[in-house]
Simulated scan of single mutants.
Amino acid sequence: MKMLLPWELLILLSLKECLANTRHGPVFTQEPSDSIFPMSTDDKQVFINCKAKGNPPPRYWKVDGRDINTDSDLNYSLVEGNLLISNPHVINHGGVYQCIATNTFGTVVSREAKVQFALQNFSSKTRNTVSVREGQAVVLLCGPPPRYGIKYSWVFNGQRSFLRQDARRFISQKTGNLYIAKVEASDAGNYTCAVRNMMTNSTVFSSPTPVVVRRDVMGEYEPKIEVQFPDTLHVSKGSSVKLECFALGPVPSISWRRADGNPLPGKIKINHSSGVLEIPYFRPEDAGVYECVAENSRGRNVARGQLIFHAEHLQWVQTLKDAHMAIDANLQWECKAIGKPMPTYRWLKNGQERIHLEAGRLTIPKISLSDSGMYQCVAENEHGSVYASAELKVVG
């Protein structure tokens, strides 16, 4: 192996230093993602990741479209470009965050990230007494605080165990409300909604709701479906979907079926009260119209909704590459993404909307020095968005 002469070594070191100090626009190496933070007395800080490289170094952040001033707002500070929120408040600091990286060569924006907080305490306000006739149906409202990633239960008369669900009683995991199809005299008492944070395993309790059962008896009537799933629901590949259905009235039976007459998937799970149908590992063959049938001695009712298979999250099949071009040259950039529904496209120059585009194609005829900067192609549909970025350098 040939030994380098001293002057050759100096040239090599100079080249390496030159390459290391090449001036370029900002490029993200880490972007923020949707986050749910548990809120407890010990939670004093929230950390949102975002990193970018560039020469000169870039600077950052926005929330709900507004610039964050880390000098004037003491709750916010930067730690190597990452955002630190001190003493976060569930209302003031929840929102959509976006990392902004900018230097003398241009600006790029990160994907948007939703920041939510898992749980607060209930209001301590006393709840009104609910008066109901024997044989009548009743819905008790949970009225939970802002919540994400939680499970609902109810406590009856302060008992240690949670209220059991059956054909007559149902707890929605969408709203937290307790539904009793047909009230009996033994249902009189105090009901407390319990909300458990699945991240921290902590539980908060509502004020009790007193229920008084009157002696006059309610007549029988056909089932009324009070809890039902959406008319249309997009389900992504491999995810688990839960459909809720519960009816009020003289205790109805709940059954499930597919509208096209095909059998239900063999992998489905139906809970003990039949009020929840779960389809794990969703696949294209699971898509279709599902029906919930509620039936009692007085009649029947049907609720239905369509499950639509959502094949993939948005993915790039063609992105952008940096371009170094001479004045008066013609620039044409194109980006392509796949996903269902088909994505729409928009272009940004230095973080701002750029017009003069056609679908995923950006054309700039006879470029000038003012066209230099950072460009981004954004592909988006109702399920999300993806960003691709590149730098345009125009040389005289």
Rank of each mutant, 00 (worst) to 15 (best):
L5Y: 14
L9M: 14
L12E: 06
L13G: 07
C18G: 08
A20M: 14
Q30R: 14
F47L: 05
K51I: 09
N55P: 04
P57Y: 08
P58W: 00
R59Y: 12
Y60Q: 04
V63E: 01
N75C: 09
S77G: 08
V79W: 11
E80T: 10
H89P: 03
H93R: 12
I100F: 05
T107Y: 00
Q116K: 13
F117T: 01
F122I: 04
F122N: 01
K125C: 13
N128M: 08
S131Y: 11
V132G: 00
A137K: 00
P146D: 05
Y152V: 02
V155W: 11
Q159E: 15
Q165H: 08
E184I: 13
D187C: 06
A194P: 01
A194K: 05
V195G: 01
M199W: 02
T200F: 07
T200W: 04
T200Y: 08
F205Y: 15
S207V: 12
V213F: 09
R214P: 01
R215L: 07
E222P: 12
Q228C: 07
D231S: 10
H234M: 12
S236D: 10
G238H: 06
C245I: 03
W256D: 05
A259D: 13
P263R: 12
P265H: 03
I268R: 06
S274T: 09
Y281S: 11
P284Q: 08
Y290N: 07
E291G: 04
E295R: 14
G305R: 05
F309G: 04
F309K: 06
H313Q: 14
Q318S: 10
D328A: 07
D328R: 14
A337S: 14
I338F: 11
P343T: 03
R346T: 15
W347H: 14
K349D: 05
I367A: 03
S372K: 00
Q376E: 15
V378I: 15
V378E: 01
E391S: 02
E391G: 05
K393R: 13
G396D: 13
